[in-house]
């Protein structure tokens, strides 16, 4: 095979990645539109459009679509994308394919910070994403320092993460018990859901999520190098400690921002990265946008299912995601070893 043939094939790989992104983009738009069109009530888009044209802004369908479904659909896409990308980064930094924001306690850290702010400093509710970020970052750093100091195996890191997650979840429950009226809809917050989410709730967080995803794409090449292992990355001239810190801070911003309005939404941080790698095993510069799109699609569709399956009652998206995602993930593991990216060592 000569160089020109290879270059041609490389181009075809690039166009494959672009094709995958385009298809996922279309799927995301479709799932977003379906989220706006359907819900637990019978509000119709045609009625809303008619009311909007005639200037009847008090029309129930228009108000439901504009103030309930639309922010909810946007929130689902944002939370899914943020948690999925956060999962990709955490897996790369900790070299552990079983790590995800909810499993290693990043979500719980953010959740505890949110619970404390809402319960004790309710006047600071506007700063929930910042509190969530610091909560997520504290958990991330705790795991990182334990793994760095003890040179632990991947299994140990996961077990330490589960223990930290358990401790932080106990903290959230303690806050809920002591301040029972502090968090609106606490059950939804604990499993993750978008009930009652408004544009005001995501007005702060969306900027962090967008910036976090763009910054992660920018650091894609560095994540690739880090994925080779600490010593290989050092040998290539990377400042591994600093890069890990920057990446964990980015993962924390993403997870914390999502938790601030979506609650302790789990599983998408594990599912998104694994599906992405199966679809398009590639450099993180491609993997991160693909993972963001897949995360957005998963959460969007699961939220829609939760709203329509027992309408007019709603199931929080976290419950649907566990029901759908659990078997799906087991299927992925049974289907092959391809998803075990960071478990293979030579």
């Amino acid at each position: 095979m000569n160089i020109s043939e290879k270059s041609f094939t490389r181009r075809s790989y690039r166009s494959k990645t672009a094709g995958v992104m385009m298809i996922l983009g279309v799927l995301l738009i479709l799932s977003f539109l379906l989220s706006v069109l359907f819900g637990s009530t019978g509000a119709k888009l045609t009625d809303a459009v008619r009311a909007f044209i005639s200037g009847n802004y008090t029309d129930a369908s228009l108000r439901i679509i504009l103030y309930i479904r639309l922010p909810r659909a946007v929130a689902a896409v944002l939370a899914g994308a943020a948690l999925s990308v956060s999962g990709v980064i955490i897996q790369a930094v900790l070299n552990n394919s079983m790590a995800s924001p909810n499993i290693i306690g990043v979500n719980s850290g953010a959740g505890l910070a949110v619970s404390i702010v809402v319960a004790i400093f309710p006047f600071m509710a506007d700063y929930l994403p910042i509190a969530a970020f610091f909560g997520a970052l504290s958990s991330c750093m705790l795991i990182y320092f334990i793994s760095a100091r003890t040179n632990s195996s991947r299994l140990t890191i996961t077990l330490v993460g589960i223990s930290i997650s358990s401790i932080l979840s106990a903290g959230i429950n303690a806050v809920r018990t002591i301040f029972p009226d502090s968090i609106y809809n606490t059950n939804t917050f604990m499993v993750g859901g978008f009930s009652g989410v408004s544009f005001a709730d995501i007005s702060f967080a969306w900027k962090f999520i967008l910036a976090g995803i763009l910054f992660s794409v920018f650091l894609g090449k560095d994540i690739d190098i880090l994925s080779l292992g600490e010593e290989s990355a050092m040998s290539l001239g990377m400042n591994v400690k600093m890069k890990r810190f920057i990446l964990l801070a980015t993962a924390s911003i993403l997870a914390g921002s999502a938790v601030s309005f979506a609650g302790l939404l789990g599983f998408v941080g594990l599912l998104g990265p694994h599906i992405s790698r199966r679809i398009c095993p590639s450099s993180h510069r491609s993997l991160i946008p693909i993972s963001a799109l897949i995360g957005g699609i998963i959460v969007s569709i699961c939220d829609l299912i939760g709203r329509v399956i027992f309408a007019p009652y709603e199931l929080p998206v976290g419950i649907i995601m566990s029901f759908v995602g659990g078997p799906f993930f087991i299927g992925l593991i049974l289907m092959g070893r391809k998803s075990r990216v960071y478990d293979q060592v030579m």
Partner: peptide, 16 residues
């Protein structure tokens, strides 16, 4: 340049 004994096997193409 160092090639450590233990290293991860990434799911990328050899060229990458």
């Amino acid at each position: 340049a160092s090639l450590p004994q233990s290293r991860n096997i990434p799911m990328i193409r050899s060229w990458e």
